[in-house]
């Protein structure tokens, strides 16, 4: 689902390492600035590490039946579907869908998702996509908490 990256190599790849990310595409910051991308990246990574769930973020069109499309996308979002959470934002349709797997739904009940969605839509309506997403992620990861099984890894 991610856009195919246009590879324009500057020969930064070596025998042991891949090419630098910045060499893979020239328009990485066409939607968001690098600063905003860094905020998104940190929010996704830190909430995933903190909770042990896997938060992914889809930004794009969701078709006519947004819920069905979002659940379909969720099915392709990785190997750990029960512990996954997909936030699908369609700015063109002004819709945001949050899909949680079975195990994730026990830790983030639908009511908590609705609250996070409410805070996201508030920011989105004001034109602040990144801020809304970061705040929604923060709310959901706060709700999910830090499971004891992960505690020895990060302390």
């Amino acid at each position: 689902m991610t856009r195919a990256l246009e590879v324009e190599s500057h020969d930064t790849a070596t025998h042991d390492t891949a090419a630098a990310r910045t060499d893979e595409a020239s328009d990485l910051d066409s939607i968001f600035s690098f600063q905003e991308l860094a905020r998104l990246d940190e929010a996704l990574t830190m909430s995933s590490r903190e909770t042990g769930l896997r938060f992914t973020l889809y930004i794009g069109d969701l078709g006519k039946q947004t819920r069905i499309r979002a659940e379909e996308l969720f099915g392709h979002s990785g190997d750990h579907l029960p512990e996954s959470v997909l936030i699908a934002v369609s700015p063109g349709q002004r819709v945001v869908e949050v899909v949680t797997g079975a195990a994730a739904a026990r830790r983030i009940p639908d009511r908590a998702c609705a609250l996070a969605v409410l805070s996201m839509t508030g920011s989105f309506a004001a034109g602040d996509l990144v801020g809304g997403i970061v705040n929604g992620l923060r709310q959901m990861s706060d709700q999910a908490g830090h499971p004891p099984a992960l505690r020895h890894l990060h302390d």
Binding site: F74, V95, V96, A102, A105, M120, A149
Partner: peptide
């Protein structure tokens, strides 16, 4: 992080993982 909770699945497990009943929420603005 060492052995995180997202360690790669062993190769060969091609059976699709069912996510079970899905939860979530929807919002418009």
């Amino acid at each position: 992080a060492g052995h995180g909770s997202h360690a790669a699945l062993p190769a060969g497990s091609s059976a699709p993982v069912t996510a079970g009943p899905l939860g979530g929420a929807r919002g418009t603005w």
